[in-house]
Amino acid sequence: MKPRIAIFSLTSCEGCSLAILELEDQLLALLGGVEIVNFREGMTERAWDIDVGFVDGAVSTPQDEEEIRKLREHCRTLVAIGACACLGGVNTLKHQQPPLEYREYVYGAGAKWFPTTSARPLSAVVKVDYELPGCPMVKEEFLHFVKCALTGKQFRLPADPVCTECKKLGNLCRYEKGELCMGPLTRAGCRAICPAYGSVCEGCRGLLGADAVAAAREVFPARYGVPFDRIADRLRLYGAYQDDGENAISGVLQPSR
Protein backbone atom coordinates (compact mmCIF):
# COMPACT_ATOMS: atom_id res chain seq x y z
CA MET A 1 0.00 0.00 0.00
CA LYS A 2 1.23 3.50 -0.79
CA PRO A 3 2.07 5.72 2.17
CA ARG A 4 -0.73 8.20 2.90
CA ILE A 5 0.49 11.76 3.13
CA ALA A 6 -1.28 15.01 3.99
CA ILE A 7 -0.38 18.69 3.87
CA PHE A 8 -1.71 21.24 6.36
CA SER A 9 -1.26 24.96 6.99
CA LEU A 10 -1.25 27.01 10.18
CA THR A 11 -0.52 30.76 10.28
CA SER A 12 1.40 31.34 7.05
CA CYS A 13 1.15 32.39 3.43
CA GLU A 14 0.83 28.69 2.50
CA GLY A 15 3.66 29.22 0.06
CA CYS A 16 5.30 26.00 1.23
CA SER A 17 2.15 24.03 0.44
CA LEU A 18 2.06 25.69 -2.96
CA ALA A 19 5.70 24.69 -3.50
CA ILE A 20 4.48 21.08 -3.58
CA LEU A 21 2.04 21.92 -6.38
CA GLU A 22 4.92 23.70 -8.15
CA LEU A 23 6.64 20.33 -8.50
CA GLU A 24 4.49 20.08 -11.66
CA ASP A 25 6.58 17.70 -13.80
CA GLN A 26 7.20 15.46 -10.81
CA LEU A 27 3.65 15.47 -9.45
CA LEU A 28 2.45 12.40 -11.35
CA ALA A 29 5.52 10.43 -10.34
CA LEU A 30 4.97 11.60 -6.77
CA LEU A 31 1.40 10.34 -6.87
CA GLY A 32 2.72 7.03 -8.17
CA GLY A 33 4.63 6.63 -4.91
CA VAL A 34 2.32 8.16 -2.33
CA GLU A 35 -1.37 8.82 -1.83
CA ILE A 36 -2.29 12.37 -0.86
CA VAL A 37 -5.30 12.16 1.43
CA ASN A 38 -5.67 15.69 2.77
CA PHE A 39 -4.41 18.88 1.11
CA ARG A 40 -6.42 22.09 1.34
CA GLU A 41 -4.41 23.83 -1.41
CA GLY A 42 -4.81 20.94 -3.83
CA MET A 43 -8.01 18.95 -3.30
CA THR A 44 -11.39 18.79 -1.57
CA GLU A 45 -11.40 15.26 -0.10
CA ARG A 46 -10.38 14.85 3.53
CA ALA A 47 -9.14 11.76 5.34
CA TRP A 48 -7.49 11.40 8.74
CA ASP A 49 -5.48 8.16 8.67
CA ILE A 50 -2.11 9.74 7.83
CA ASP A 51 1.36 8.22 7.61
CA VAL A 52 3.26 11.45 7.00
CA GLY A 53 1.79 14.87 7.71
CA PHE A 54 3.55 17.99 6.37
CA VAL A 55 2.65 21.22 8.14
CA ASP A 56 3.59 24.76 7.16
CA GLY A 57 3.01 27.89 9.20
CA ALA A 58 3.65 28.98 12.76
CA VAL A 59 1.52 28.34 15.81
CA SER A 60 0.21 31.86 16.30
CA THR A 61 -3.39 31.56 17.56
CA PRO A 62 -5.24 29.36 20.05
CA GLN A 63 -6.86 27.61 17.05
CA ASP A 64 -3.40 26.85 15.60
CA GLU A 65 -2.42 25.29 18.88
CA GLU A 66 -5.52 23.12 18.96
CA GLU A 67 -4.99 22.16 15.31
CA ILE A 68 -1.35 21.12 15.67
CA ARG A 69 -2.14 18.94 18.70
CA LYS A 70 -4.87 17.24 16.67
CA LEU A 71 -2.51 16.76 13.68
CA ARG A 72 0.14 15.26 15.92
CA GLU A 73 -2.40 12.65 16.98
CA HIS A 74 -3.44 11.82 13.42
CA CYS A 75 0.02 11.73 11.76
CA ARG A 76 2.41 8.86 12.38
CA THR A 77 5.25 11.10 11.22
CA LEU A 78 5.00 14.87 11.53
CA VAL A 79 7.16 17.07 9.30
CA ALA A 80 7.47 20.84 9.75
CA ILE A 81 7.91 22.58 6.38
CA GLY A 82 9.17 26.12 5.88
CA ALA A 83 10.73 28.77 8.08
CA CYS A 84 7.49 29.50 10.00
CA ALA A 85 6.92 25.90 11.06
CA CYS A 86 10.62 25.24 11.74
CA LEU A 87 11.92 28.51 13.22
CA GLY A 88 8.91 30.74 13.84
CA GLY A 89 9.45 32.62 10.59
CA VAL A 90 8.39 36.16 9.78
CA ASN A 91 5.32 35.74 11.99
CA THR A 92 7.54 36.37 14.99
CA LEU A 93 8.14 39.96 13.86
CA LYS A 94 4.94 40.81 15.68
CA HIS A 95 6.77 40.23 18.95
CA GLN A 96 8.48 43.58 18.38
CA GLN A 97 5.20 45.25 19.40
CA PRO A 98 2.82 44.81 22.34
CA PRO A 99 0.10 42.20 21.51
CA LEU A 100 -2.79 44.62 21.58
CA GLU A 101 -1.02 46.97 19.20
CA TYR A 102 -0.39 44.40 16.47
CA ARG A 103 -3.84 42.89 16.87
CA GLU A 104 -5.45 46.28 16.40
CA TYR A 105 -3.22 46.97 13.43
CA VAL A 106 -4.35 43.73 11.77
CA TYR A 107 -7.95 43.34 12.91
CA GLY A 108 -8.95 46.94 13.59
CA ALA A 109 -11.81 47.68 15.99
CA GLY A 110 -12.79 44.01 16.23
CA ALA A 111 -9.39 42.96 17.56
CA LYS A 112 -10.73 41.63 20.81
CA TRP A 113 -12.63 38.94 18.89
CA PHE A 114 -9.42 37.57 17.40
CA PRO A 115 -7.20 36.21 20.15
CA THR A 116 -3.60 35.47 19.21
CA THR A 117 -0.61 34.00 21.00
CA SER A 118 3.07 34.60 20.41
CA ALA A 119 4.19 33.00 17.11
CA ARG A 120 6.08 29.74 17.63
CA PRO A 121 7.44 26.90 15.55
CA LEU A 122 5.63 23.55 15.73
CA SER A 123 8.33 22.07 17.93
CA ALA A 124 7.45 24.57 20.68
CA VAL A 125 4.07 22.84 21.03
CA VAL A 126 4.36 19.23 19.85
CA LYS A 127 7.04 16.69 18.98
CA VAL A 128 8.25 17.18 15.40
CA ASP A 129 9.98 14.29 13.61
CA TYR A 130 11.62 16.16 10.71
CA GLU A 131 12.09 19.74 9.58
CA LEU A 132 12.39 21.01 6.00
CA PRO A 133 13.32 24.68 6.51
CA GLY A 134 13.43 27.64 4.14
CA CYS A 135 11.21 30.50 3.03
CA PRO A 136 9.66 28.87 1.17
CA MET A 137 10.60 25.25 1.73
CA VAL A 138 12.88 23.93 -1.04
CA LYS A 139 10.65 21.73 -3.17
CA GLU A 140 13.54 19.53 -4.31
CA GLU A 141 14.33 18.85 -0.66
CA PHE A 142 10.71 17.85 -0.09
CA LEU A 143 11.02 15.42 -3.00
CA HIS A 144 14.28 14.07 -1.59
CA PHE A 145 12.56 13.58 1.76
CA VAL A 146 9.75 11.60 0.12
CA LYS A 147 12.29 9.43 -1.75
CA CYS A 148 14.15 8.74 1.48
CA ALA A 149 10.87 7.77 3.14
CA LEU A 150 9.95 5.46 0.23
CA THR A 151 13.35 3.76 0.03
CA GLY A 152 13.99 3.58 3.76
CA LYS A 153 17.06 5.82 3.50
CA GLN A 154 17.95 8.07 6.43
CA PHE A 155 17.05 11.71 5.74
CA ARG A 156 19.55 14.33 6.83
CA LEU A 157 19.53 18.05 6.22
CA PRO A 158 22.75 19.40 4.64
CA ALA A 159 25.26 20.28 7.37
CA ASP A 160 27.19 22.72 5.14
CA PRO A 161 26.66 26.47 4.83
CA VAL A 162 25.19 28.33 1.85
CA CYS A 163 28.76 29.38 0.86
CA THR A 164 29.43 25.89 -0.46
CA GLU A 165 26.59 26.21 -2.95
CA CYS A 166 27.64 29.72 -3.98
CA LYS A 167 31.16 28.50 -4.67
CA LYS A 168 29.97 25.49 -6.64
CA LEU A 169 27.82 27.77 -8.77
CA GLY A 170 30.80 30.07 -9.34
CA ASN A 171 29.02 33.11 -7.86
CA LEU A 172 30.88 36.22 -6.85
CA CYS A 173 30.85 36.42 -3.04
CA ARG A 174 28.53 39.16 -1.77
CA TYR A 175 31.29 40.26 0.63
CA GLU A 176 33.32 41.24 -2.47
CA LYS A 177 30.60 43.83 -3.05
CA GLY A 178 30.82 45.05 0.52
CA GLU A 179 27.60 43.35 1.59
CA LEU A 180 27.19 41.35 4.81
CA CYS A 181 25.69 38.02 3.79
CA MET A 182 24.42 35.43 6.27
CA GLY A 183 25.59 32.59 4.00
CA PRO A 184 28.53 31.49 6.20
CA LEU A 185 26.13 30.92 9.12
CA THR A 186 23.21 29.44 7.25
CA ARG A 187 22.32 25.89 6.33
CA ALA A 188 22.70 25.07 2.64
CA GLY A 189 20.16 23.25 0.51
CA CYS A 190 18.61 26.22 -1.29
CA ARG A 191 21.22 26.21 -4.07
CA ALA A 192 22.21 29.67 -2.80
CA ILE A 193 19.23 31.10 -4.62
CA CYS A 194 19.39 34.61 -3.08
CA PRO A 195 23.12 35.26 -3.70
CA ALA A 196 22.77 33.68 -7.15
CA TYR A 197 20.12 36.26 -8.03
CA GLY A 198 22.01 39.23 -6.64
CA SER A 199 20.84 39.46 -3.04
CA VAL A 200 22.42 38.46 0.26
CA CYS A 201 21.43 35.35 2.21
CA GLU A 202 19.05 36.29 5.04
CA GLY A 203 19.35 32.98 6.84
CA CYS A 204 15.86 31.60 6.18
CA ARG A 205 17.04 27.99 6.47
CA GLY A 206 18.38 28.52 9.95
CA LEU A 207 21.72 28.58 11.69
CA LEU A 208 24.25 25.82 11.14
CA GLY A 209 25.29 25.55 14.73
CA ALA A 210 26.94 27.08 17.74
CA ASP A 211 30.47 27.04 16.21
CA ALA A 212 29.42 29.27 13.34
CA VAL A 213 27.64 31.68 15.69
CA ALA A 214 30.69 31.80 17.95
CA ALA A 215 32.81 32.69 14.91
CA ALA A 216 30.30 35.40 13.92
CA ARG A 217 30.61 36.96 17.38
CA GLU A 218 34.35 37.32 16.76
CA VAL A 219 34.26 38.27 13.11
CA PHE A 220 31.57 40.94 12.75
CA PRO A 221 32.72 43.34 15.48
CA ALA A 222 36.45 42.85 14.93
CA ARG A 223 36.62 42.63 11.13
CA TYR A 224 33.62 44.64 9.97
CA GLY A 225 32.94 46.96 12.89
CA VAL A 226 29.38 45.63 13.17
CA PRO A 227 28.11 44.68 16.64
CA PHE A 228 26.81 41.14 16.85
CA ASP A 229 23.41 42.44 18.01
CA ARG A 230 22.79 43.81 14.55
CA ILE A 231 23.57 40.43 13.03
CA ALA A 232 21.24 38.79 15.55
CA ASP A 233 18.51 41.23 14.49
CA ARG A 234 18.86 40.08 10.93
CA LEU A 235 18.90 36.40 11.80
CA ARG A 236 15.73 36.90 13.80
CA LEU A 237 13.80 37.88 10.66
CA TYR A 238 13.20 34.22 9.82
CA GLY A 239 14.64 32.43 12.79
CA ALA A 240 13.60 33.86 16.14
CA TYR A 241 13.41 30.34 17.52
CA GLN A 242 16.68 28.59 17.03
CA ASP A 243 19.47 27.29 19.12
CA ASP A 244 22.58 29.40 18.65
CA GLY A 245 24.36 27.96 21.67
CA GLU A 246 23.94 31.10 23.80
CA ASN A 247 20.29 31.96 23.33
CA ALA A 248 21.37 35.27 21.83
CA ILE A 249 18.97 35.29 18.95
CA SER A 250 15.78 34.08 20.55
CA GLY A 251 16.89 35.27 23.98
CA VAL A 252 16.79 38.97 23.14
CA LEU A 253 13.16 38.67 22.20
CA GLN A 254 11.81 36.05 24.54
CA PRO A 255 8.20 36.10 23.43
CA SER A 256 5.40 36.25 25.96
CA ARG A 257 3.61 32.97 26.46
Partner: peptide, 13 residues
Protein backbone atom coordinates in the same frame (compact mmCIF):
# COMPACT_ATOMS: atom_id res chain seq x y z
CA UNK B 1 39.90 28.80 14.49
CA UNK B 2 37.85 30.98 16.86
CA UNK B 3 36.95 33.06 13.84
CA UNK B 4 36.50 30.13 11.45
CA UNK B 5 32.91 29.53 10.30
CA UNK B 6 33.88 26.13 8.87
CA UNK B 7 32.21 27.38 5.68
CA UNK B 8 34.65 25.61 3.36
CA UNK B 9 35.08 28.62 1.05
CA UNK B 10 38.88 28.33 1.26
CA UNK B 11 38.62 24.73 0.02
CA UNK B 12 36.19 25.45 -2.75
CA UNK B 13 38.17 28.29 -4.33
Amino acid sequence: AQRCYSCGSCNLV
